[in-house]
Design a binder for these strands. Structure first.
Length: 569
RNA sequence: GCGCUUGUAGCUCAGUGGAUAGAGCAUCUGGUUGCGGUCCAGAGGGUCGCAGGUUCGAUUCCUGCCAAGCGCACCA
């Protein structure tokens, strides 16, 4: 619709120029938008404000010229308002058409033929083995999986990828801690193995930073490990599996599926093979015993690829990884969801790849950290992180306490957590508030889930009262449409452009805000308009269609965010 | 020191080159012989960090300043 209006305006301008009503000028970008206030209609354009100066007429004068030309049957009216906005109001027939369309074709997403579909890879989660999977990692998973869902919904072919940090300094520290403090312990009998590793890691980090002698010991072990010491390698392989098992459990609980797995330990080998070429091309060089890439001339500092003791660092692993993504998987776009603190690093990485002659579309989506409200700041090195598992348990417990009759408290809890994190834009730091997140009122997951359950409840009740909701029938709705009906339909109609927008901007929090608004509008409609009324079957049928459309769109929105849409709760 | 990000209602957060800056929580006032009130309607509450600049128009773009967070060679 937007595009059609924009095109129409362009045509009008060109006609007016040819007929001499308007002088010749370069036509500026024409933008038709949703007005921020609903009293200004469905669509609005400020084209007359933009043209006023060019044509040396007042904005109002220009607007009136357009008004005449733009009148058409889809619109109830085309209105001009100070200082020169042109607003489009739809007729009831158009609103009814929207409801019919959603009932017949689903959420209203139409894949226009000219839309470019791409093969895209989204890398996210990237947990480190031997460390706790904490609530910051949860945010990453929520953002990443939502981006995957949205891209798929908008027609792209998406590979979701995970990149496991199964080697590096943190592993060596954990292994050192194990051999130093737990050499006598039979590791196989330990109960929560992944949790244990996280604990050993933070103990080891603490000990090494407190005691210079330990530091030296650790350095020796790290060197042995890098050199392939058999005993260390076998300990690494064994403990790595513990972490991997834990990750799989979490992903399963969150309904997360990855299509591809990459491992740092494997990329490390590729990186080593690539190094001579980087040195030969003059991209990398020796400095202070280490191998670095000097990016000072691009104002990007210096990146160390190889430590002076020969240890391979993350940068050298990410270069072959990027190549592999594009060359092996044939993708056109690569997206990486990472902690915002790595943004300088990713700028460096992309620049290095560019210098290497690798010109591809690579994007990183940064997000800020998560803390628990009233908790101290977290760091897995300090060991004061809140593990994902603990948060899920705590929120589930809170749901149980507040709503003892809830049939599936964990589902509500997971919805509450996902929504609680996804409703914040990526740049904002989250202080997760357990109590607030599980409330049924306010901006919460349960509130939206409740709205969905209510739509389901109405449809169930309707079937019991002898209405056949799924049968195809013409939408009547009341004549004329009630304000609350229009407001609800208007909201429904925004879904497809929202999905498109999120697919381009990765601003996943907009889905959460849309879901809230839609739930709001539905509740408001529900309060005003009686749906099931055996006295007025035609109105009931029509409103049931509207409820069904709401259920479809709300369900899909929740689905994109990875939140369960319950039929009952 | 340099760089990045943020600064909007008491609190938590949205939003925008234009039309009276929006939600939720909290506070106050109404609404149920209910299609699940776990809801709805309404009220109060703002110099959009400060100062300049660009513009017909800036909370939004630019510059400076202030404040907070983060990053800046051997962690990822």
């Amino acid at each position: 619709m937007k595009k059609i209006l924009e095109q129409k305006i362009r045509t009008i301008i060109e006609e007016l120029q040819q007929s001499g009503v308007l002088p010749l000028f370069v036509v500026p970008e024409i933008r038709v938008e949703r007005p921020k206030d609903e009293q200004f209609g469905e669509y609005t354009t400020n084209i007359s404000l933009m043209l006023a100066k060019l044509v040396k007429k007042s904005p109002m004068e220009v607007a009136h010229i357009f008004q005449e030309k733009l009148a058409s049957e889809e619109f109830e009216k085309v209105e001009v308002m100070n200082p020169g906005h042109i607003n489009f109001y739809f007729s009831d027939a158009y609103f009814r058409e929207i409801v019919t369309h959603i009932n017949q074709k689903g959420s209203g997403i139409d894949y226009s033929v000219e839309e470019k579909r791409e093969k895209v890879m989204v890398e996210y989660s990237q947990p480190n083995t031997h460390k706790e999977f904490h609530i910051g990692h949860l945010r990453n998973v929520f953002i990443g999986s939502t981006i995957v869902n949205v891209l798929r919904k908008s027609g792209h072919e998406v590979i979701s990828a995970n990149y496991i940090g199964d080697t590096g300094t943190h592993i060596a520290k954990c292994l050192w801690g194990l051999t130093k403090f737990y050499a006598d312990v039979n590791l196989d009998t330990i109960e929560n193995k992944a949790e244990f590793l996280g604990k050993v890691y933070s103990e080891a980090t603490q000990a090494i930073s407190d005691n210079p002698a330990y530091e030296d010991e650790f350095k020796v072990l790290q060197k042995d490990f890098d050199a392939g010491d058999k005993i260390l390698i076998s300990l690494w392989e064994k403990t790595k599996e513990w972490s991997m098992d834990e990750f799989e459990n979490i992903y399963k609980q969150l309904h997360i599926v990855f299509d591809a797995y990459f491992f740092e330990s494997i990329e490390e080998e590729s990186g080593k093979k690539l190094l001579p070429e980087l040195l030969k091309k003059g991209i990398a060089k020796q400095s202070e015993g280490a191998v670095i890439v000097d990016l000072e001339e691009y104002n990007l500092g210096v990146l160390v690829l190889v430590r002076k003791d020969g240890g391979v660092l993350y940068g050298l692993k990410d270069i072959p990884l990027a190549k592999e993504k594009f060359e092996k998987f044939n993708i056109e776009r690569s997206i990486v969801v990472v902690d915002v603190r790595q943004s300088l690093y990713f700028k460096q990485l992309f620049k290095i790849l560019e210098l290497y002659g690798f010109h591809k579309e690579m994007i990183y989506c940064g997000y800020e950290f998560v803390a628990l409200k009233d908790g101290e700041s977290m760091s897995s090195r300090k060991g004061n992180v809140i593990p994902a598992r603990v948060l899920i348990e705590r929120v589930t417990e809170s749901v149980r306490k507040q709503f003892p009759e809830s049939p599936n408290p964990e589902m509500v809890a997971l919805g509450a957590i996902r929504f609680g994190m996804l409703r914040h834009s990526s740049v904002s730091k989250i202080e997760f508030d357990v109590e607030m997140s599980v409330r049924f009122d306010g901006a919460t997951g349960p509130y939206v889930q409740y709205a969905y359950a209510r739509t389901a409840g109405i449809l169930r009740k309707a079937e019991e009262s002898g209405f056949s909701v799924s049968e195809e029938s013409i939408i009547v709705l009341s004549e004329p449409l009630q304000m609350k009906e229009i407001e609800l339909i208007r909201e429904l109609s925004k879904f497809s452009s929202l999905v498109k927008e999120v697919a381009e901007t990765y601003e996943v929090h907009k889905l959460a805000h849309f879901a809230l608004k839609l739930a709001d509008k539905f509740h408001s409609f529900y309060n005003d308009c009686k749906v099931i009324d055996t006295e007025h079957r035609d109105v009931s049928m029509a409103r049931l269609k509207l409820v069904r459309a709401t259920k479809i769109v709300l369900g899909e929105t929740l689905g994109l965010m990875g939140i369960d849409a319950p039929e009952k709760m």
